[in-house]
Design a protein around this nucleic acid. Structure first.
Length: 290
DNA sequence: AACTGAGACCGGGTGC
DNA sequence: TGCACCCGGTCTCAG
């Protein structure tokens, strides 16, 4: 499951491989075309695949940027700029290869849904096993309303105050703290894995109501989130089931996780417990986390 | 107007 | 071997 660190890794890998290159053409999988014919938006959102094909032709990849768990491809053609948005969902992955056979894991090759041919002769491939990811072609960020509501990047100076402010709002005050920190409108890029880890490292139980945390606890929790996100970025992200870095590598962070999907607390050696919060499995230590 | 909950999207993995 | 079910990030829509 790609969260902020995994998406950051993909962006850092992609940049030197494709920035400056020109998209000659793009083709989509049968699933995408068939879905569009049935009125569904499989992978490709807010545009017909045929439109997408036509419009990205001869566009230069000017830069690539991560924002929350999204990847922004800044494209240019004839002095005009465009945005191609990619969200990896549960199982999205990007590859840069000379031929599809270079994608060695069959499940990723089998579920390649967008294949861009670059002027270098290489293929830029978006693969997505569970199809929870998306590709969106836009003129500007405002074309997709939810993007305007995203919280600041957690490493921004404003992010802590933004988080503290959101905790006080009626909408969030009485919700479990774990649900609050996983909300992209409160903190950007913190999903189940890193929410679980940061709550464990600060000894805070995930079910506590947001407004029942002390100011000190909230500040410590926010700091812990930034720390674990940074640690994960530094270690290539967590490869849990379907996350792969560009061209199929695995991350190293999964071995450093202390609470996510653990049966035994590494701190006190007692059994952990799991509850469901906002639809997500939330593992915690009932002894260490108060 | 604003919030809430349900539904939709999927196939690999797991357990019976 | 087969099959039903579980899981999850985010948006959309009905209430």
């Amino acid at each position: 499951m790609p969260e902020l660190p995994e998406v950051e890794g993909v962006v850092r890998d992609l940049r030197p491989l494709v920035v400056g290159k020109v998209i000659q053409s793009v083709r989509f999988s049968e699933v995408v075309y068939r879905g569009a014919a049935q009125g569904k938006q499989s992978i490709v959102k807010n545009a017909e695949p045929a439109y997408f094909e036509r419009v990205v032709q001869n566009m230069r990849i000017a830069s690539i940027e991560r924002r929350s768990k999204y990847i922004f491809f800044h494209l240019e053609k004839g002095g005009e700029s465009f945005l191609m948005l990619s969200h990896l969902g549960m199982s999205g992955a990007w590859f840069v290869v000379h031929s599809m056979e270079e994608i060695t894991e069959l499940k990723f090759r089998k579920h390649a849904h967008a294949i861009f041919t670059l002027n270098s002769g290489e293929l830029l491939v978006y693969s997505d096993i569970r199809r929870f990811g998306e590709l969106r072609f836009m003129k500007e960020i405002a074309d997709h309303a939810p993007l305007l509501k995203m919280a600041p990047e957690p490493f921004d100076d404003t992010a802590l105050d933004y988080f503290l402010m959101k905790c006080e709002l009626p909408k969030y005050a009485k919700k479990p703290i774990k649900e609050v920190i996983m909300d992209g409108q409160v903190i950007s890029g913190c999903g189940n894995i890193y929410a679980t880890e940061s709550l464990f490292s600060t000894n805070i139980r995930p079910t506590r109501k947001a407004n029942e945390l002390t100011d000190q606890e909230k500040r410590a929790l926010f700091a812990a989130i930034c720390e674990v996100l940074q640690e994960s970025i530094d270690n290539g992200g967590s490869t849990i089931s379907d996350y792969r870095s560009v061209n199929g590598g695995a991350g190293g962070m999964q071995d450093r996780l202390k609470m996510y999907s653990r049966k035994i607390c590494p701190q006190c050696a007692l059994s952990t417990e799991a509850v469901v919060i906002a639809g997500r499995t939330s593992t915690y230590c009932p002894h260490c986390q108060k």
